[in-house]
């Protein structure tokens, strides 16, 4: 797989928190790579550094030491700043605060207008972006009357219209109700699958993380563990110890397996959990 983002030994310190000890650093020597077309979830507590890291991917923050390369471009390269931001779009947590214009389609056009796309082309891109997030019918509406999930999809459309290779979403569902969360997560998985856009999803909902190709767990400004969802959630003990959530299905099977029942190491959702238990039961019957 082709590497897209490379994070190399990155330390980051917020202004005003200078100090030598590691607690003064929001990021503590982070190393990771994100591949083209991958769907990566980054999970961790508030203060684990996950949101700080998210803002490094498109040069909003620059590493205090260390480097980040986006498609080979160093994020510190000021001359190529807009090139980086065109490649990597960032969606923020609060849906209200990232919508600039008073009409949906004009907000979606905002980014394209900034990078000097010709008018006719913007129109095409905006329409396509709105269709991709299933908000085309609302193109002439005011964002005020929309639900949180719809607003967040507008924000995503505004990024898609700039035709990025990667979208970073910084806790996009934290302020939404369950329906809004489903809408947003459905939208980003579709974008990843159908348009091949690389997705980096920052979240603390584990039910969302299990949908990713790869999960990276952050703790105290560093990567605690990473791997496929199955690999990561198999480490229930480690996650629990750091007071991170585990889906109830995963926890149940883990506990049962811990009592000596022969069950798979890790399940991610209720279907897998039920299947595993039924398989176990039928085996038991066979063995009498």
């Amino acid at each position: 797989m082709e590497e897209f983002i490379e994070v190399k030994d990155v330390y980051f310190q917020y202004e005003g928190t200078e100090g030598e000890d590691s607690s003064a650093f929001a990021l503590n020597g982070v190393n990771m790579t994100i591949n083209k077309g991958e769907f990566v979830a980054i999970v961790g507590h508030n203060g684990s550094g996950k949101s700080t890291l998210a803002k490094h991917f498109n040069s909003i923050y620059l590493p205090t030491t260390g480097d980040i390369f986006v498609d080979g471009i160093n994020t510190k390269d000021d001359d190529r700043l807009f090139e980086i931001r065109k490649k990597v779009g960032l969606v923020l947590q609060n849906p209200d605060n990232q919508i600039v214009a008073g009409i949906v389609e004009e907000d979606v056009a905002f980014g394209c207008e900034n990078i000097g796309i010709p008018s006719k082309e913007i129109r095409i891109r905006v329409d396509n972006a709105l269709k991709a997030v299933d908000m085309y019918d609302y193109r002439t509406h005011s964002p005020d009357k929309l639900s949180g999930g719809q607003k967040q999809r507008i924000a995503i459309a505004g990024i898609i219209a700039m035709e990025p290779e990667c979208i970073v979403l910084d806790e996009p569902t934290a302020m939404l109700d369950p329906q809004g969360r489903d809408e947003v997560i459905h939208t980003i998985t579709e974008l990843n699958r159908n348009m091949g856009i690389t997705i980096i999803l920052i979240t603390h909902y584990m039910e969302e993380a299990v949908l990713a190709d790869r999960v990276i767990v952050m703790d105290s400004g560093n990567v605690l563990t990473s791997g496929t969802p199955k690999e990561v959630f198999a480490q229930v003990e480690l996650l629990k110890q750091r007071r991170l959530d585990v889906p109830q299905a995963t926890e149940l099977i883990y506990k049962l397996a811990g009592c000596g029942f022969e069950l798979p190491k890790c399940v991610l959702n209720e279907e897998e959990c039920v299947q595993a238990l039924i398989k176990y039961c039928s085996l038991q019957k066979k063995n009498g």
């Binding site: 889906p247 109830q248 299905a249 039920v274």
Partner: peptide, 20 residues
């Protein structure tokens, strides 16, 4: 009505449907 039950309750409901 657009609500759900806790995941663990759902699992138990599904198991029961399957005859467990």
């Amino acid at each position: 009505i657009g609500l759900r039950v806790p995941q663990i309750t759902k699992i138990m409901m599904m198991l029961r449907q399957k005859g467990i």
